[in-house]
Structure formats: structure tokens, C-alpha cells
């Protein structure tokens, strides 16, 4: 016997969470685009699209958020940082979305702990839907996990035969929510799982060593000439986290905000003197790829990429990080690294 949720009961699950005073965030269609947003009505939940346009990160690390408020006196300043994270149920994300949270936890938690991020993490219960389909931009399986991986989720809903989901409780927090809404679930024997696995497209283990050996390589200039530097890839990425700190206010006071920023923008690294350590778009792409697949895993043990494919589907010039990873995989296979300790 296992815990099941009939597909037609998804709305009841959302209604139940709302009745328990949770804010519910899920995919909904807005002006023709499916976006994660706060749901005001369970009927607004829209699971037509494989993936939403925006990622779930903005419900933990918003596009812009005040990190302090200041009131200006003649010579004095008063500071405040009143902040509370609403109790939230986040439903309808995918295994890739959930994994991005595990990657982001490492960044916001190491050494100095970002209380804004973690307050939202703690206040949010993540209910993930395993995928019953994929498209050509999906590559979770190439990153060593897959469409029904539980990591980062509190509850995992796996579609099974018989128009139902198998309910897997992943964390205590997820267990508590399921217990709170117990009457929506049923017990039964689950049908066969309807999970769709994209084929593995490159050898992950080869990517980091290749990047570490090839900081200087014609690849960077040749492959990324088309990039416009618009930053769409980084803003839609669930695992990108670069931010700026900016004051907004008037003569009486205002707030200091943490705003999303992007390594793809030329000003991102430009010094006051005008010197720019990353002067070309190729060097910014090298940063993006190297950061995701060499620097971040080197430091935190996780790739800062989850294979969701958003950056690929939405790039205005059709650049695909997946294509580039496949190319790197081929290059690495054609010219394997020297054995450790070998001298040229």
C-alpha cells in the first residue's frame, strides 16, 4: 500500500493548503505565458507546460528585495530590517527546480548565512511533480540525477497509471504538511510510474577537467560569437545567483536592495578605472560555463546548473549550453587529459 493523490484532487490539495493559511505558489498562465506565481484560486494551476518561464528561485531569492531600510535625519540615520517570510506551499516545480535549491543552499549558507534566503527556505514546503515528458532542451539525466529525484523537495508527486500521483514524503516538513491535509490522500496500490527520462547527452565527469585545462582555447571565441549579452539565460536560470546591492530612496529615506545581476553584462566586472577583467562576451561565457561546471562544484560539490533547459528555450540567438557541453564532452574524449604527474 502507498499514499496516492488522484490527479483531480490537486485543486483540493491547493484549496486545503490555502484554508490552512499557506500562501500557495504554482504555475499559472498569465498573458499567454506560464509563470510561477502566487495562486489566488486553485483552478489557476496550469500544468500544460513542461517548465515555467521563470524559475522557482525568485520565491527564495527575489529579483529585488530590501536588505535594510534607512531613515535620514539631519546628521543621523536610523536603520531597520523588519522581515518575515510567509508560510508557503510551492507546488508544481520539477526535480530540476528542486535541485537548484539544494545548490543555492550551499552558496547562501557557507561562511556568512543569508537570513533572507533561509527564512524563506524554512517557511516553504516544496511539492515537486516528477516529469512524464521532456523536450530537446532537458538534460537532468546528464547531470547525474533525473526527473523523479527527490533532492530539494519536501514532497514528491510521481505520476502513475490510473490518473494519480504516488506521494513520496521526502522531509519531515513534507510529512507534516501531508498529515495536515491527510483527508485529501488515499491509500492504494500504485499503477506503473509514468516518468520520462531524457537520454544522457554528455559525460559530466569530463567537463570540469576540460574547463580547468582550457581557459585559453579557440572554442571560447568561436562558439559564442553570436551572444548578445542580454542576460536572459542567467535571469531564467534557477541556479544563477549573482546580485548587486543598490540604494533606492529620496531625501527622507529609502531601502538598500539586493537585486539580481548577471555575469553576462559587460558592466558586471568593470573597474572604476575602466579596466575590465572580462572584456569580451566570449570571456563572460567562459565565466558562465566554468562557474557552473568547474568553480561551483569545486567549492560546493554541486554543479550550478540543473539541466532545466530554460536558458536554451529562451536564448534570443539560439545558443545552447547543452550543445556546448556536448562539444566539450567530445573534445575531452578526443584529447584526454595527461595522466596525473606527467610532464609535457
Amino acid at each position: 500500500m502507498a499514499r496516492l493523490l488522484a490527479k483531480e484532487k490537486l485543486g483540493a490539495l491547493i484549496r486545503g493548503a490555502m484554508d490552512k493559511k499557506y500562501r500557495v505558489v504554482g504555475p499559472a498562465r498569465e498573458h499567454g505565458i506560464v509563470l510561477f506565481g502566487e495562486l489566488s484560486d486553485p483552478a489557476a494551476l496550469c500544468l500544460d507546460e513542461l517548465n515555467t518561464q521563470n524559475s522557482v528561485k525568485e520565491f527564495f531569492f527575489p529579483k529585488t528585495e530590501p536588505i535594510l531600510k534607512y531613515a535620514l535625519g539631519k546628521h543621523d540615520v536610523a536603520l531597520a530590517d523588519d522581515f518575515a517570510a510567509p508560510r508557503t506551499v510551492l507546488i508544481g516545480g520539477r526535480a530540476c527546480d528542486a535541485r537548484s535549491l539544494v545548490a543555492l543552499d550551499r552558496l547562501f549558507g557557507w561562511d556568512y548565512k543569508d537570513k533572507f534566503y533561509f527564512a524563506r527556505r524554512e517557511a516553504t514546503c516544496v511539492i515537486t511533480l516528477a516529469c512524464d515528458r521532456f523536450d530537446e532542451a532537458c538534460f537532468c539525466t546528464s547531470l547525474g540525477f533525473g526527473p523523479r529525484a527527490p533532492e530539494g523537495s519536501d514532497v514528491l508527486l510521481v505520476p502513475v497509471e490510473g490518473d494519480a500521483y504516488l506521494v513520496e514524503v521526502v522531509t519531515d516538513k513534507g510529512g507534516a504538511l501531508v498529515a495536515e491535509l491527510a483527508d485529501i490522500f488515499t491509500e492504494g496500490t500504485p499503477g506503473a510510474e509514468k516518468v520520462a527520462y531524457p537520454e544522457k547527452k554528455f559525460e559530466l565527469a569530463a567537463i570540469k577537467p576540460w574547463l580547468e585545462r582550457n581557459f585559453e582555447h579557440p572554442f571560447w571565441n568561436e562558439e559564442f560569437l553570436a551572444c548578445l549579452g542580454c542576460g536572459t539565460c542567467t535571469y531564467q536560470c534557477p541556479a544563477c545567483y549573482c546580485f548587486d546591492i543598490v540604494d533606492e530612496g529620496d531625501i527622507h529615506g529609502g531601502q538598500r536592495c539586493k537585486n539580481w545581476d548577471s555575469c553576462q553584462l559587460a558592466l558586471f566586472t568593470r573597474h572604476t578605472s575602466g579596466h575590465n577583467p572580462r572584456p569580451t562576451q566570449a570571456s563572460r561565457w567562459r565565466q558562465r560555463l566554468s562557474h557552473k561546471f568547474a568553480y561551483y562544484p569545486g567549492k560546493f560539490g554541486y554543479e550550478a546548473c540543473v539541466g532545466c533547459g530554460r536558458c536554451i528555450r529562451n536564448c534570443p540567438v539560439g545558443l545552447s549550453i547543452l550543445d556546448k557541453l556536448v562539444l566539450i564532452g567530445r573534445e575531452a574524449a578526443a584529447a584526454p587529459a595527461e595522466p596525473a604527474g606527467a610532464q609535457p
Binding site: D111, Y241, F243, C263, F268, T269, R270, Y295
Partner: peptide, 16 residues
């Protein structure tokens, strides 16, 4: 160029 000074904002790296 730095913003946070805390190892989070992501821009001051030279390689890793």
C-alpha cells in the same frame, strides 16, 4: 569589482 564582500554576489573571482 565587489558588491557583497561575503563570497556571495559572484563577481570578484579570478578563475576559481
Amino acid at each position: 569589482r565587489m558588491k557583497c564582500g561575503l563570497g556571495k554576489c559572484g563577481r570578484c573571482n579570478v578563475g576559481a
